[in-house]
Design a protein around this nucleic acid. Structure first.
Length: 421
RNA sequence: GGAGACGUCGCAUAGUUCGGCCUAGUGCACCACCCUGCUAAGGUGGAGUUCCUUUUUUGGGAACCGUGGGUUCAAAUCCCACCGUCUCCGCCA
C-alpha cells in the first residue's frame, strides 16, 4: 500500500513512478479524490458520534420520568450515526481499492520501461570457454545420476523432477553453504510454513496481477507459497519491532511452489523452470532510511555466494515496469549459462521500502519516539536453479563436474562428481 | 471428530451475574522527578495503538476489551458466527 501522505503531498512523484512503470497515471487523481471523500466521511461520522456519546450521558443521568423523552430524541440520531458510519467505512474501502492498485514509488535511478529495459550494473567473472562441445545441465545431470525428469513427470506431471544421488547432495550442500554464510552475517535461520492464509498472501502483495501463479487449496483456504518471502514478511506482521541494534535479518529455508501459468513451452528442458524447488531466502526488516544501504548489502552477499561457486554473472537494475507492485527497486543477478550462451536469473533482491510493511502493519519506534513503518527487503541466497549454472560451468569433457572448493566440505571433500556408468 | 473452559491497555489480573457511575480499576515492569551516605525501600507524576482535525505551542475529537456481524438511545458486559488457546475423550503416530 502506498503512503497516503505521499499521495497528498507529492502526487507528481507518484505520477512519475507510474509513468516509468508504464502504468495509468490517472489513478492518482482518483485516489486523491477518494482520500478526500474518505476523510470527509470520517469527520462527519465522528462529529455525529461525539454528539451521540454526550447525549448518552444525559440519558444515563436523567431522572426516570425524563428518560423516555430523551431516548425518543436519540433514536433519530442513532439512525444518522449508523448511516454515517457505513458511509465512512465504504469510503475507506473505496480508497483502499483505488490506492491499492498503485505500485510502490520507484527509487531514483531505476530505469523506466519494461522487461528489456534493464541496466547492467556490472559483469563479474570470466565467461567459461570449453575446448569441447559443452553438455547442457540435463544431459550432465542424467550422466551423473543427479536429475531424473522422466520419473518426476511420471509421479507428478510436467515440470516435476527428482534430484537423486549427487544431485540431491549438491542441492543440500548448496543450501547448507548459503545457510552458513547467512549465519556468519548474523541472520536468524527460519524454516517457514509453505501454506499461508489469504490475509498474509494479500498483505505481501502476491494476490495482485500474478495471482494465477499461485497454488490455492480452496478446501482449506490456504495458499502454497512461491517463496518463503511470504511467510518471512508475515512473521512480524502487526508488530512493533526494536531495530535499535540494526536490521532484523532472517534466512528462510523452504520449498517453493509455482504454477508457471502462461509459460507453456518456455524452458521446458531440465530444471530451469519447475513447479517446485528449494530456496534459501534472505529477509530484512530495517529503518526506511537504511533500506538502500541494506539493499546493497544483500546484493553483496549474493555476489559473494556466486563468486565462491566460481560462476560468471552480471548484476542488473531491473526496469520499473518489471518490478512487481511491492518493489521500489530490484536487482537481479544472472549467471552465465554456457549452453544457452546467455545470462539467466539466479537471484533477485527487492527493496520494498515501506510498501509491504504498511499493509502488514509492521512498525518500529526510532529513538523512543513515534512509530514508523519499517522497510522490508528480500533476496535469494541459493536455489535449486543454481545447479544449472553450477553443472554447466564446471563440467569437463568426460561429463564429470568439478566441485567448487567452497562446496566440498559439504560433500565429504568430494572434488569431482563422476558420471555413473 | 466429541465435550467443556477461556480470550481485557507490555506482563499479570479486576470488571461480564443485573448494559449507562468503565474517558476500563489494581499489581508488576517502564520513564521522569523527589527523598534518604550507596543499594534496596518509599513518595509524586507520566505513560498504549490507530485515525480525523484551520493544534503556531499547550490542543480537540473518534475508534480499539480475539475477529466480524447483530440487538439497543447506549455494549468489555446481551445474542450469533468465526478464529485462537487450554483441559478431557476419541482417532492417528
Amino acid at each position: 500500500m502506498i503512503d497516503p501522505q505521499i499521495l497528498r503531498s507529492n502526487p507528481d512523484v507518484v505520477r512519475a513512478s507510474l509513468a516509468a512503470r508504464r502504468d495509468d497515471e490517472s489513478v492518482v487523481d482518483r485516489a486523491i479524490a477518494a482520500d478526500l471523500a474518505r476523510r470527509d466521511a470520517i469527520a462527519a461520522f465522528e462529529t455525529l458520534r461525539a454528539e451521540q456519546n454526550s447525549h448518552g450521558k444525559l440519558v444515563a443521568a436523567a431522572p426516570k420520568e425524563e428518560k423516555a423523552a430523551l431516548v425518543a430524541a436519540a433514536q433519530d440520531l442513532a439512525e444518522r450515526v449508523k448511516a454515517a458510519d457505513r458511509a465512512a467505512t465504504d469510503a475507506g474501502e473505496e480508497f483502499t481499492r483505488i490506492a491499492g492498485g498503485i505500485g510502490n514509488v520507484i527509487i531514483d535511478g531505476v530505469p523506466a520501461g519494461g522487461e528489456e529495459d534493464f541496466v547492467t550494473l556490472r559483469e563479474v567473472g570470466t565467461i567459461p570457454t570449453f575446448d569441447f562441445e559443452p553438455r547442457d545441465h540435463l544431459e550432465l545431470g542424467e550422466m551423473l545420476g543427479a536429475i531424473d525428469i522422466a520419473r518426476g513427470v511420471k509421479v507428478s506431471g510436467s515440470r516435476f523432477y527428482f534430484l537423486s544421488g549427487i544431485g540431491a547432495r549438491l542441492e543440500i550442500a548448496l543450501m547448507s553453504l548459503a545457510l552458513d554464510r547467512a549465519l556468519a552475517e548474523g541472520f536468524t535461520p527460519l524454516i517457514t510454513p509453505t501454506l499461508v492464509s489469504p490475509a498474509i498472501m494479500q498483505g505481501t502483495g502476491f494476490l495482485g496481477a500474478h495471482s494465477d501463479e499461485i497454488y490455492y487449496l480452496p478446501e482449506d483456504e490456504l495458499y502454497l507459497t512461491g517463496t518463503s518471502e511470504v511467510a518471512l514478511a508475515g512473521f512480524h506482521s502487526e508488530e512493533i519491532l526494536d531495530l535499535s541494534a540494526g536490521p532484523k535479518r532472517y534466512a528462510g529455508w523452504s520449498t517453493c511452489y509455482r504454477r508457471e501459468a502462461g509459460s507453456y513451452g518456455k524452458d521446458t528442458r531440465g530444471i530451469l523452470r519447475v513447479h517446485q524447488f528449494n530456496k534459501l531466502e534472505m529477509f530484512s526488516y530495517c529503518a526506511p532510511a537504511d533500506a538502500e544501504a541494506e539493499h546493497d548489502r544483500l546484493v553483496g552477499w549474493q555476489e559473494s555466494m556466486l563468486q565462491l561457486l566460481g560462476l560468471s554473472y552480471r548484476v542488473i537494475d531491473v526496469a520499473a515496469g518489471d518490478l512487481g507492485s511491492s518493489a521500489a527497486r530490484k536487482f537481479d543477478i544472472e549467471a552465465w549459462i554456457p549452453t544457452q550462451g546467455t545470462y539467466r536469473e539466479l537471484t533477485s533482491t527487492s527493496n520494498c521500502t515501506t510498501f509491504q510493511a504498511r499493509r502488514l502493519n509492521i512498525r518500529h519506534r526510532p529513538d523512543g519516539g513515534a512509530t514508523e513503518t519499517v522497510a522490508t527487503l528480500n533476496g535469494t541466497l541459493a536455489t535449486t536453479r543454481w545447479l544449472v549454472a553450477l553443472l554447466e560451468t564446471h563440467q569437463n569433457s568426460d561429463g564429470s563436474v568439478t566441485i567448487p572448493e567452497a562446496l566440498r566440505p559439504y560433500l565429504g571433500g568430494l572434488a569431482v562428481a563422476e558420471p555413473v556408468s
